[in-house]
Design a binder for these strands. Structure first.
Lengths: 335, 335
DNA sequence: CTGTTAGCGCATTCAT
DNA sequence: ATGAATGCGCTAACAG
């Protein structure tokens, strides 16, 4: 055992000729301390390079001053944007984020949730995921919770989400309006609510336009580029003709686009594509991709703002993030 | 303050008719306990759904049972792969990883390091980064440390890295061998050692072949796709002709490729590209990209293996990861 | 405003 | 093999 953390609050107290409590007070800022002692303590802290022991602090106060963030895949661009938003708003709040990754697996996600709970996170931000809603409802009773990207009626106030159904609807409608009738849907992981909703939106738009929902034109993807590529292969094998694709996120849209490109199929001349998320990278990188806007950074900011409010015991107001199409040139009009 | 964590070790002791010490013993497994009491305790734990308080445990034991991982950008594919390797090896070790992100900024990185230290991580894995080496040397004295992707002579045993110089050299040599003489280098962030080394390797290969190093053909990138795109724009403005590009990572190679594509320049027919990292996504997604292999998962596995060894006070053996070219069809032979 | 006291929940002596 | 006692470093009443 290394003996770093040798200097304790008592050492500071001694050096500054005050009691430990006084040191604690200037540290927390919860009570007034005479100027002279204040500076003496601060000076001692600096000289001795004192760092509070978070274990002792957590044990005594019951708070960890951390916000647990449960994600599905830390290294996905959309999560990156959300996390960025979270960080921005947490800065200066005194709380630090602690991340745990669900790796798109329900088992790992459960485990990650436990880790966060065990670490006594003062608040929890759950981004998407496939945790049974009962688990989240139960969790919400024990600790301030904000769920991003899912709508759970029982704890609706804790949820922050875009209208995925509407997004899927708009995307599909956009294609229909442009004359497309054989429209593919590359869905997300269907154990995730948002994926299902986007699919339902797609179906609704078709039905509303009097078009049949053709299962052969629906392929379940995995929210990553590879699955977009594979989806095209699957579609080719099925042999159904199509003139447009609605992919449930930009990464899959991107994969699909590349797969088409390799087969010599042009976008949007031969096939139109619309994605989802409006990821900066997609926007900037790919040949222009029409997509549905997912205000990820804003979602993240709202999430951390809300969790802070909840921790402070203050009310939160429900913000809604409407679905919105961002048009670029990956959809063409059919004649 | 919520009163979750109501059930303590004392509750278990009471229910199982033993002393708290005994409960602690079965929990840690550090001492023999009679079978009957053992099962009684386990039963009580299960029934009361007991979870140890990590603060109390950390305070009493001085250990956190966590490994701090300092990254530069959690959401970068290469870090993702490294982290995956780390996770694999940590599983079942009793240690959990805790992540902190340096966001490619020295300031944020310093902060992240402090966070990890404050959390009393029992070991630290620092992936790349731009922390002054003095800081790392000092840190290594206080806590078991493994540095991935940097070579620091003073703590060489703690370092785990590929030969970036050799990688840059090989990549450039490969292009030269194929007849290219005007070779662009889109470098990484030059405050990072690995970026500098790849650049130096590039220069060495040029000189060795009797080619001049032309500053106009060198562009500093940011290790992401966007900077690859921008690099091409910058090059176009400069107006220097070139027939090949060596990009210091696959993401930038990818960006460069797209930028070229948009300008109607074909790869590899008009311009050859070689990347760095051999990222699965690149390999799978982009039109084949010749690249330098970066065994990220293996690096991650080695890192966590080593950190575990260090914590146990056991010796580690120095593994070397040689640079290796992975050839696909993004480099053509010039006639 | 400040010092004193008493735990927070657990691991770890030390006895037995 | 097991219980009792002690303390990890800090915060939060409680007095003054």
């Amino acid at each position: 055992m290394l003996d770093r953390q040798k200097v304790t609050i008592q050492d500071i107290a001694d050096k500054a000729n005050v009691s430990p409590s006084t040191v604690s007070r200037v540290l927390s800022g919860n009570a007034r301390v005479v100027e002279s002692k204040q500076t003496a303590v601060l000076e001692a802290i600096r000289e001795l390079n004192y760092r509070p022991n978070i274990f002792a602090r957590g044990l005594a106060s019951g708070q960890s001053m951390t916000i647990g963030v449960l994600t599905q895949n830390i290294s996905s661009p959309i999560y990156d944007a959300i996390m960025w938003g979270i960080l921005q708003n947490l800065k200066g709040s005194g709380y630090s984020p602690v991340f745990a990754d669900g790796y798109w697996s329900q088992e790992a996600e459960k485990n990650a949730l436990h880790i966060l709970l065990d670490r006594h996170a003062d608040g929890l931000i759950v981004i998407g995921g496939s945790s049974p809603k009962e688990v989240l409802i139960e969790t919400a009773k024990r600790v301030p919770l904000v769920v991003v990207g899912r709508e759970i009626p029982e704890i609706s106030e804790n949820c922050l989400k875009m209208d995925d159904f509407q997004g899927g609807y708009l995307a599909t409608q956009h294609l229909i309006e442009r004359g497309h009738r054989q429209i593919v849907n590359i869905t997300g992981i269907l154990s995730h609510d948002d994926a299902v909703e986007r699919l339902e939106g797609y179906k609704k738009a078709l039905k509303e336009a009097g078009l049949a929902v053709d299962d052969q034109l629906i392929v379940e993807g995995g929210f990553n580029e590879q699955s977009g590529v594979m989806a095209i292969n699957i579609l080719m094998e099925r042999g159904r003709a199509f003139s447009a694709i609605f992919a449930a996120n930009d990464q899959m849209a991107f994969g699909a686009r590349l797969a088409l490109y390799r087969k010599g199929i042009r976008v949007p001349d031969d096939v139109s594509i619309i994605g989802y998320d409006n990821q900066p990278t997609s926007a900037y990188m790919t040949p222009p991709l029409t997509t549905i806007d997912q205000p990820a950074v804003e979602l993240g900011e709202a999430a951390s703002f809300n969790i802070l409010q909840l921790i402070k015991g203050q009310a939160i107001e429900k913000t809604t993030f409407p679905a919105k199409i961002v048009m670029r040139e990956s959809v063409s009009r059919l004649r």
